[in-house]
Amino acid sequence: MESFNENAQSQDMENLPDQGACATCPVHHAANLKKLGVDMENWDYVVALAGNPNTGKSTVFNALTGLRQHTGNWPGKTVTRAEGGFEYADHRYKLVDLPGTYSLLATSLDEEIARDFILFGQPDVTIVVVDASRLERNLNLVLQVLEITNRVVICLNLMDEAERHHMEVDHRRLARDLGVPVVPTVARYNQGLEDLLAAVHEVASGETMAKPYHVKYNHPKLDRAVSQLVEQIKETFPQVPNARWVALRLLDGDERIIQAVEEGELGELTYSRENMEGVRVDHVSQKSGFAQ
């Protein structure tokens, strides 16, 4: 992650939405989005949709791709990945809807699917869809995603429900604290999706370089152990973009990551285009829709 950040221009996230007046004009964007449905040929960027269960990932997915993945108001509806495409600002995107999870510790199949994709699939951007009315619990997942990748955009969804619960959520403050773009949306009614696309595009194209917040452990022994492991990992796998996270998982005895080290799979982790072809696709893209 460090190597990625070094050549990155650090930017104040506050300035993000102001990338030129034209680019923020809804008319400009509305004309710019082309829903491609299942047509995902020759994509330029891969975008993953992660988030807690029942925060509206599939709704965002449908709104962007024009597909009609079954949405339902209950947690755990999406059990595997669904994929679709859209075109925005002359670039073609492949969008992958991941199962909703509360964490990425891979204790269940859906957590494993989500984590493996964010880690080994190396999407160009990971959108974390967050329930604005249940921010605290949702941030647990956000912080875990930020440990794995800094190419993150937060979709602060269900703003209408937060309002209904008489809450005010300061998305600018959140963006500053998390170090990644935060876009407030009401996906059910297509509000804020233009801004979301703009933010995704900026992260995908590298116009925005994030400096994500990393969890502080305040535990000297742990910090020492992590930095020692990080050094070793970087020596062996100089390309690895998230050595700190790998170190933490190894210390925690995470079987999947141990296996990735054993088999050298970790060495393949770089943010290069070619790698995308080798993504493990164990899980058929399928949804638990009523009729499928």
Partner: peptide, 26 residues
Amino acid sequence: FHERIMEALYTDATRIADRAVTYPDE
């Protein structure tokens, strides 16, 4: 170890959420 990192995660999540969310009226 595991409890430590989970605790740190929750603490940070709570702190960041508290800073962002306000309840303007009762």
